[in-house]
Design a protein around this nucleic acid. Structure first.
Lengths: 297, 297
DNA sequence: AGCTTCCATCTGAAAAAAAGATGGATCAAT
DNA sequence: ATTGATCCATCTTTTTTTCAGATGGAAGCT
């Protein structure tokens, strides 16, 4: 087979070290070996990779371009070996993470960048489920790890770890009657409340219910759109209000009574019975470590 | 070097043909060669690629995954050889195409997909210049090919080919005085006209000028936003009006006089002096062939 | 049971790669 | 200008790798 890995390796080393001799030293091979490999490669490709006027070889334009290609080939070979090694180490090949929209996403970018650096061979799938329950996804094996707002008592098969508490804020539209001043409990009850559509039934769902009339909506973001229209009021995490495109049309009136910010727990969940691989364990640890910095409170 | 191209080639062929013997026949090698190569590869990777119970080898889970990786390595090698070949054939390594926003983009996707298939080794850069003139970019060598609305007489260094004619339509906001009925010339002149900011000066610029008061705006899309606000009227290609996000707030009143749609020429331009490579020629031909199907009229 | 086709393994032959030696060229320092 | 170090290309020899052919055991089909 022409254009072999040895040729490419010699070529890349020569380009990197600036001379065939240095490349030979780096690869622990004789200078003549590098010289012939590069010459053969040039012969196979039908062009000159180096200009040999002068003491040291200098990359030609073609050499410059093909150097990048050669690196890719060699890197993909390394990658293949890495994938094989992670197979041996029983690292997961694929990891599905379901994250509730309640989780502030700012930290996710750096977290998953670090994950990619540690586990380059793991395929990662991120779910931001709307109508489906995160714990349901974990329970059914459709997700390996979940980050969710604990609305209900969790099934016993689910292991969990509390990441933190997210305070909810009263929010309504600019022209809503509640926007005028300090709000008390009785006044809240008289207006329509917008709540996230519970994906399962249970008592936790009722804890945050205050008003007589309630509409159920599938997402906090959509709730804010509706709140803006004056359709009702809602309890929404502060960071969602702040990053909403309609935030300028929203008002967060102060509340008259105590314990008024209704904190909800944000939980990291996984399945007790399904064995976790190194990647899942790593990700769980890093999620847990993000607790203080990533979340309010 | 362990994990060689020969090993990967044998592996992929064995997986594709379902047996080592068949792979050997396909690669014109002895069955024993394939067998040894695959065995060595498995040894190097430290895992089994095939399950050998039964008559024919069957891919293991690891084999399945690594097959994809092996294909990538081999493909990248092929790609490198292709890049080298196109260097030899003096194919451009890079092609910059500047396209005026006036050109309807629907056809571009399939066109450039076909380009990628024909010239996989050419780096393509697409420009959709706003304030800069396409012909200027081509003249300065910043773009190899341009598609532009001919506003001016083209410099003699520029070669061109007319792709077609785009009819302009009168457009104004819902509440604009012109929206009420059939419009005549004199009435047009009394209201503010919005025109695309000419990037160079010249007589063609004046041909489309009707009103006494004119505002210059850098893009048709922004013009439509301003038209919607009732700031003035404009002449805009139909396909831009149709695909505008504010199209529901726009009105296109009929005109009383003849020749009322002011067609403008859409030109394919390139530099006469700079030699065109095969990729540029191919792309020019395909652009020209798109004339009938891609444009109105 | 018999036949075919599969795979693994062994052996010797062929090919490829590497090392070592040699000579001509370049560059820097003297 | 000369010297010495270092560079590359090339040749020869040695080592390693690859390949083909032969053989035997196992699987599947009739």
């Amino acid at each position: 087979m022409s254009v072999t890995l040895e040729q490419l390796q010699a070529f890349v080393a020569a380009a990197e070290h600036g001379s065939f001799s240095a490349a030979g030293r780096a690869l622990r091979k004789a200078q003549s070996a590098i010289s012939t490999q590069v010459a053969n490669l040039e012969d196979d490709l039908g062009l000159a990779l180096f200009s040999r006027t002068g003491r040291n070889p200098v990359l030609t334009a073609a050499g410059e371009r093909l150097l990048a290609e050669a690196r890719v080939v060699l890197d993909r070979r390394e990658h293949l070996i890495g994938v094989a090694a992670s197979f041996e180490a029983h690292v997961e090949h694929r990891l599905v993470v379901a994250i509730d929209e309640l989780y502030p996403e700012q930290a996710l970018g750096t977290l998953f960048a670090a994950f990619a650096a540690h586990f380059p061979h793991v395929e990662l799938e991120l779910l931001f489920p709307m109508l489906e329950d995160v714990s349901r996804l974990v329970l059914d094996g459709k997700a390996d790890i979940g980050v969710m707002w604990r609305q209900e008592v969790l099934p016993t098969e689910i292991a969990f770890h509390t990441l933190g508490w997210v305070p909810l804020q009263l929010v309504c539209g600019k022209d809503h009657p509640l926007a005028r001043g300090v709000v008390d409990w009785e006044e809240l009850k008289r207006h329509r409340q917008l709540m996230v559509a519970a994906r399962s039934e249970g008592p936790e769902k009722q804890r945050l219910r205050s008003a007589a009339e309630v509409w159920w909506v599938e997402s906090h973001w959509i709730i804010l759109q509706m709140v803006r229209q004056g359709i009702g009021w809602a309890l929404v995490p502060d960071h969602i209000i702040r990053s909403s495109p309609v935030r300028d049309d929203l008002v967060t009136p102060p509340l008259q009574f105590d314990g008024a910010d209704w904190p909800v727990a944000l939980e990291l969940v996984w399945h007790k019975q399904r064995p976790s691989g190194p990647a899942a364990r790593w990700l769980r640890e890093r999620f847990a470590a993000l607790r203080i910095s990533g979340l309010p409170r």
